[in-house]
Amino acid sequence: MANSGTEHTVKAFDSDINQLRGMVAEIGGRSEQAISKAMRALENSDLELAAEVVREDKLIDDLEKRIDELTFQTIALRAPMADDLRELIATFKISGVVERIGDYAKNIAKRVPIVTQTSRLTPISLLPSMSKIASELVRDALDAFARRDAELAMEVNRRDQIVDDFYNSIFRAVITHMIENPKDIGEAAHLLFIAKNLERIGDHATNVAEMVYFAATGEPMPERTRGENPATPLDDALSDEAD
């Protein structure tokens, strides 16, 4: 059942919930920005921008702590029930997941100084498109939270497959490149980690989507059905999303 938006008799409860919604929107916005800045830093070999992403991750970490404190406090003081309870539990979990998304963006930024000469590596050309989709998943998952939109949450869950497919292509391309150019193995490995980080960001966006779905409907999200053809063992190993 979606939240109808009717106000609580105790207004302070609404004010707590609204404050938390604002904070979730903020942590989501900051983590999306961290992804796009990290990718821009990578594309332009912009070390200054990369350093900024690393610095600003602290803000995301602090925000997570503040969200957790206020959620904890609200649960203790207001004894929420039904959709209020589900929303607060979702908020608590989403803040942790989004903080992890920030960490992945930071990890990408940290690799920028090491991967400055990789433009020769063809697979790198796929990364901007992959990151764009991963970033959109994060944005849509958080929009779904703000709107209690179970449908959009389902869609985020489905679209994560695109990120997984990108990762599989990049993995194969990087391995091929490594075989052909053993001297690039070091940098190519970093490139692979960056792709892996983006893939994990997509998975975390689906985690957020699952919590949004639960908060909105009170039911767990139906499991995502994989493609018709069962994945090869390699595909299976590559997409190690949290089961």
Binding site: H8, V10, A82, G218
Partner: peptide, 18 residues
């Protein structure tokens, strides 16, 4: 009833929106 009531009236009552 307390985690996922089906009726909106129930929801409003138990969540303090009555």
């Amino acid at each position: 009833i307390f985690t996922n009531p089906r009726e909106e009236k129930t929801r409003d009552y138990i969540t303090g929106r009555y």
